[in-house]
Write a protein that binds this DNA or RNA. Structure first.
Length: 767
DNA sequence: GATTTCCTTATTAAG
DNA sequence: TAAGGAAATC
């Protein structure tokens, strides 16, 4: 500990940093904005600056607050700092976490000041929807008339802008009759969540903001505490997050934000690119450092990415450069349909891996939507290429995991109806929907919880002997589990990290084994599942152990009191499960091709990247093409993110025909590909709209059988037509009626497929 | 109460 | 197509 500062002289800390990076690390600007292009060493600058502050400016670890968007980014920072800090426990004193985790940490200390139970649960989207359905039932609203998903989307949009139901009711813009119903439900939802101690994601942030605004003591406490505030991925912050940052940063503290406006891809979630573009409006003393040297990609990849992003208007305008060689050209793969596309990608991966002697894990396939992964998976497994897919069904969203966590929750909070309802009949105990409905109703009439009813024998009447027996058995099972937990509690003091780990592990074993879940899932008739389901449960136990070691119970920062309590340990673990997607990159030992959406690829890099589904309507998405605003710019940024993931080789593929949602769609290749200068491309197959080498065109007989019977006047599927500009083609599809009749015509290679409105196209039938 | 069958609907992206 | 809910059947 004594030598620790001497090991890291200022000179040593700056070693290996370029001048711009050094400036970012050492700057004493009050507010510093670092524009960090993809692959420019952003994380390095962040962590080096933290080291600098600790070592050269002598800040204590707990005086540093660093906020990220993903758990992965937070974990990455923590692990990079771990080696630098004198002992493992020291890193726990840093406030490094996601927006949500940071707010949770603050709320666990002070939520009671806002009339909340500090042990609230955190709801993900699914929990949220369940809660809303419960509420709608209580209010006697029909979920068909008031669609839960729609209501939640509105509530989320309101919360993102910091609007409470009461504020909305006053605003004239919202006073339309239709809105009043929604606002009324929103108000009830707010009350219901607080009464049941359940917070959704947006609530974590909004409640923290209100806490800091209203409670001067709390605000002052954090202002004194945090001397430096860091924000990663600043381009993705929304209005609420910006407010939070401002509230947490004292006038005399340092603010350091890192971001890249060209990588702002969360506008749909309320992110405001203006936050980074115009930060000087909030902080006139803003100082900016721009990192433009890229250490990741080849020259060609960077040039392609630069060429595409240059078409955007909303940007500060930077141009990445590299000292690296040009490297391979961008491979463009033109496929007949989605199956052909997947086959071609798999083949290329296989060939490249063999010829260049590369591992599977060095390849990634990225796509716009999760639903595009299916064909890729199929082809990969067909060619016996191991792969791992991210996203989709997340670990902590799996049925068996949610069941186990519900039992865990009941150990400590048996009055939690949502958890109880989830597992009351899992494993099957002959407690059906009707019984649960009755219980819920009775609980509501008695203004208590279901657990209260069960333990008071209130409901177990002679009228339903079978039902009474099943309920009594369930009740005694839960009591038995609680007794087991109490015993574990006596044996393990959770102030000790090691013991806390044992306690949490034991609690999960109780939740999984004593509950009967284990037997239920390991004996499932479906063999394909039984293996993974019990595997997942085991994985959950080890995740819990790890959690306890990494997250010791924090002393109460505000009052200085320590409140070590097993309940807090359990609640914190449960919350972290909700806040953690639970899927990470392939483990070091896992050698597989990686499949994921472009969004989840942000922050990652791979030697070989394939971007699949580069078609107008897919990428850019249909929705973006329809929109009047700058959603195309966001799609383009997404494209920029995709391209800049690649280190050595980038390939983009598109299919002329894609089978989706039970229909076939024809589409043109992505407009983004057309924005890449041709000299950077290497074509495989042909590309409509670009120069074509007929020799390389794939078999031109498009296999899709014309669908007979579809007609618009004399124009029927299969008929040949002539267009004044595009020449001759064949009708492939017909849509719409009267004035809006459109036909899909396949012209020659250069032109490809076009949808034409009959009224304007002036098509002539050809015999 | 559980299981099977039929019918509708859906596709942006995630903490 | 496939997933999820409602209706029908066991």
């Amino acid at each position: 500990m004594q030598n620790f500062q001497n090991n890291y002289s200022p000179e040593a800390l700056l070693q290996g940093l370029n001048p711009a990076q050094q400036e970012a690390v050492t700057s004493d600007a009050q507010v510093l904005r670092v524009i960090a292009g993809a692959g420019s060493g952003k994380t390095k600058v962040l962590t080096e600056r933290i080291k600098w502050l600790i070592n050269v400016e002598h800040l204590a670890a707990e005086q540093i607050l660093a906020i990220t968007f993903t758990n992965k980014a937070a974990a990455e920072m923590r692990s990079r700092l771990m080696g630098f800090l004198p002992e493992r426990s020291y890193v726990n004193r840093l406030w490094i976490g996601t927006f949500h985790a940071t707010c949770l940490r603050i709320l666990r200390l002070h939520a009671n000041l806002m009339g909340w139970d500090r042990n609230f649960t955190v709801m993900n989207r699914a929990d949220q929807e369940k809660t809303l359905r419960e509420l709608l039932a209580v209010l006697g609203k029909n979920p068909k008339e008031f669609v839960p998903k729609e209501i939640l989307a509105r509530i989320s949009r309101w919360k993102e802008r910091g609007l409470r139901a009461d504020m909305l009711a006053e605003e004239r813009a919202f006073s339309a009759r239709a809105n009043q119903d929604y606002i009324a439900i929103y108000r009830e939802y707010e009350k219901f969540c607080r009464a049941n101690a359940r917070a959704d994601f947006d609530e974590l942030i909004l409640l923290t903001i209100e806490l800091l605004e209203q409670e001067e003591m709390v605000r002052n406490h954090f202002h004194r505490l945090f001397r430096a505030v860091f924000v990663d991925e600043f381009q993705d912050t929304n209005e609420l997050q910006m407010r939070l940052i401002q509230l947490l940063t004292a006038d005399d503290a340092k603010l350091f934000v890192v971001g890249d406006e060209d990588q702002s891809i969360y506008g749909w979630r309320g992110a405001q690119i203006e936050n980074i573009l115009y930060l000087e409006r909030r902080y006139p003393n803003l100082h900016t450092v721009s990192l433009e040297e890229n250490y990741r990609s080849t020259g060609n990849i960077l040039q392609a990415a630069n060429a595409v992003i240059a078409n955007n208007k909303k940007r500060l305008g930077k141009k990445l450069w590299t000292a690296a060689a040009d490297g391979e050209k961008i491979r463009v793969i033109s496929a007949f349909n989605e199956k052909d596309e997947a086959e071609k990608i798999a083949e290329i991966i296989k060939k490249t891996a063999r010829e260049k002697n590369r591992s599977w894990r060095e390849f990634a396939i990225l796509y716009r939507r999760n639903s595009l992964s299916r064909n890729l998976e199929y082809s990969l497994s067909n060619q016996e290429i191991p792969y791992r897919i991210y996203g989709g069904l997340r670990f902590f969203d799996r049925q068996e995991i949610k069941d186990a966590l519900a039992y865990l929750r009941l150990l400590n909070h048996p009055e939690d109806n949502q958890a109880l309802e989830r597992i009351i009949n899992r494993p099957k105990r002959s407690i059906g929907e009707k019984t649960i409905d009755d219980l819920r109703l009775a609980a509501w009439q008695n203004a208590g919880g279901i657990w209260n009813l069960l333990t008071n024998d209130f409901f177990i009447s002679a009228n339903f002997p079978k039902r009474a027996k099943a309920l009594a058995e369930f009740t005694s099972l839960i009591k038995k589990m609680q007794a087991e937990f109490q015993e574990a509690l006596r044996e393990n003091d959770c102030r000790d990290a090691e013991k806390a780990g044992q306690l949490l592990t034991r609690a999960l074993e109780i939740a999984i084994h004593s509950s009967g879940l284990w037997d239920f899932y390991s004996n499932e008739n479906d063999r394909t599942y039984s293996e993974t389901r019990s595997d997942n449960l085991e994985e959950l136990v080890s995740a819990a152990k790890e959690f306890a070691l990494r997250n010791p119970i924090f002393p109460d920062n505000f009052t200085g009191e320590t409140t070590p309590d097993a309940g807090i340990l359990l609640d914190n673990f449960l919350a972290s499960c909700t806040l953690d997607a639970g899927d990470y990159e392939a483990d070091a030992g896992e050698n597989r091709v990686q499949l994921m959406t472009i969004h989840s690829a942000k922050g990652l890099e791979f030697p070989f990247v394939f971007v699949a589904g580069c078609e107008d309507g897919i990428f850019p998405s249909y929705q973006a093409l329809q929109s009047l605003h700058d959603e195309i710019e966001e799609e383009r940024r997404l494209c920029y993110v995709a391209f800049t993931r690649a280190r050595e080789e980038l390939s983009c593929s598109f299919a002329h025909i894609r089978y989706e949602q039970g229909r076939e769609h024809a589409s043109d290749c992505s407009r983004f590909l057309k924005e890449i200068p041709e000299n950077l491309l290497s074509m495989q197959g042909f590309m409509p709209g670009k120069t074509v080498h007929p020799a390389s065109a794939p078999n031109a007989n498009f296999a899709s059988a014309p669908r007979a019977g579809k007609t618009a006047g004399k124009f029927a599927v299969g008929k040949k037509v002539e267009h004044s500009k595009y020449g001759r083609g064949v009708i492939k599809d017909v849509e719409g009626e009267g004035e809006r009749s459109r036909v899909l015509v396949r012209f020659n290679f250069q032109i490809g497929d076009k949808w034409l409105v009959l009224k304007y196209a002036n098509l002539q039938l050809v015999e």
